[in-house]
């Protein structure tokens, strides 16, 4: 069992959803990223998505676009991202998923990328612009290195796609909550619950929901029917607004702690309600 599977299994026993924050590696620099990773873990994150910046992030809205542009201003490389990841790993067992676009991984060499990612301590890979139909080459190497290759589903995914992803996916399925790009939203689609349960009927993999989640209330709501809430742009914005390395790490920690608290409370509430029901029944 790898770290991702172990974490979901552990949380399932507690009937609690995972909180998976996303940060862009190198925004504004890798030293800050290291501090932020430590702060996120201390604040109660159950897993971390580490974004590998790309010059043409077509799935991302303005917040993560800006974030990537900032990171790319420095001498950023996968090599350096792996170094920071290794450093972080020396004192951490939290699941880490590398999140990015295909071209930088492809340019690095897919076999080498997977080997070095695994050595640096990554547990999973999510390649945003790589559809499962085109994933054979990458999957060969993620499988070889014991990395979970995570796929996306969205409101426009038909039943065949859901089946395909359920079959090929590992770790968890990332359900994109909107027909659109990343970015914090004021409100989430009320139909998400039934959309997720539709996916659940086709798979035994945990289902994480992401895109748009920005408040503790939203995270708590998602945790009622999904196995994980992924929070990206809202956190990236919080970090963007804060000043200084320590300031950014602190702000990130406070934000994530608030989200996790809301998820835990929702979980306890559900337990109490279930206990009451059992007592009455």
């Amino acid at each position: 069992m790898n770290r991702i599977q172990a974490k979901f299994a552990e949380l399932k026993k507690r009937r609690e959803a995972a909180l998976i924050p996303f940060v862009t590696a190198g925004d504004p620099d890798l030293q800050t990223t290291l501090k932020i990773l430590r702060a996120l873990e201390a604040a109660g994150a159950d897993g971390i998505e580490l974004g590998v910046p790309f010059s043409d992030p077509t799935a991302d809205g303005p917040t993560i676009q800006r974030s990537s542009e900032r990171a790319l201003r420095n001498e950023l490389s996968l090599r350096r991202i792996f170094d920071v990841l290794s450093q972080f790993r020396q004192k951490s067992q939290i699941p880490i998923i590398l999140f990015g676009y295909f071209n930088p991984f492809f340019h690095y060499g897919l076999a080498k990328f997977c080997r070095d990612a695994a050595r640096a301590g990554a547990d999973g890979v999510l390649c945003v612009d790589l559809p499962p139909e085109e994933s054979a080459e990458l999957k060969r190497w993620t499988d070889a290195e014991g990395l979970d290759l995570i796929f996306l589903l969205s409101p426009t995914s038909g039943p065949e796609r859901v089946k395909l992803v359920a079959q090929k996916g590992r770790g968890f399925i990332y359900y994109v909550s909107v027909t659109g790009v990343t970015g914090a939203r004021h409100s989430l689609d009320g139909g998400l619950r039934s959309q997720v349960s539709r996916v659940r009927s086709a798979t035994s993999l945990p289902i994480g929901v992401g895109f748009g989640i920005s408040t503790p209330k939203q995270a708590a709501w998602i945790s009622e029917f999904a196995d994980a809430a992924v929070v990206g742009s809202a956190l990236v914005e919080t970090i963007e607004r804060a000043k200084g390395r320590s300031g950014k790490a602190r702000a990130a920690g406070i934000f994530v702690a608030g989200l996790k608290r809301a998820i835990k409370r929702a979980s306890k509430r559900r337990d109490r309600q279930n206990n009451l029901r059992e007592a009455r029944g």
Partner: peptide, 10 residues
């Protein structure tokens, strides 16, 4: 074929 730098950035 794509014009890219050593990091695969366009």
């Amino acid at each position: 074929y794509v014009l890219q730098n050593g990091q695969g950035q366009i």
